[in-house]
Nucleic acid binder design. Structure first.
Length: 109
DNA sequence: ACGGTGACGTCTG
DNA sequence: ACAGACGCCACCG
């Protein structure tokens, strides 16, 4: 329980449920949690997840399919991880992002 | 205790 | 169509 961060834990749960080869957006997670527009907070959770290895934050990108936080992974680590899962990334942008998109409110429903 | 900031998203002009 | 501003919640100084 470590109820230090209620919403944080919720976000981690969702991100952790993201299957390999799939990606989701901050807004999708925020909306799933009921915080529409609180996408910023989701990004913050990812920032904290940076210290946790159980959180595949590299599967979380912005609505444009752009690896906004790849800079935080330490270079192209994020791109390598995604490519390793079969996701093509070019110019910090995921190709066929929509095809790899994973919506928690639908898949996790 | 308060204000500013932050890996975004959506609306309006 | 593009650009700018606002809003959400939590952490840090």
């Amino acid at each position: 329980m470590s109820s230090s961060t209620n919403s944080f834990d919720l976000i981690y749960q969702v991100v952790r449920e993201i299957p390999a080869g799939r990606v989701t957006s901050y807004g999708a997670i925020a909306a799933y949690l009921g915080m529409k527009g609180g996408a910023r907070m989701v990004g913050w959770a990812m920032n904290a997840s940076h210290t946790i290895a159980d959180i595949p934050a590299h599967r979380v990108v912005n609505r444009n399919g752009v690896l906004t936080g790849k800079n935080f992974f330490g270079g192209d680590r994020m791109e390598e991880l995604l490519a390793s899962e079969g996701i093509r990334v070019q110019d910090d942008q995921i190709l066929a992002f929509k095809s790899h998109f994973w919506d928690p409110s639908i898949e996790l429903l």
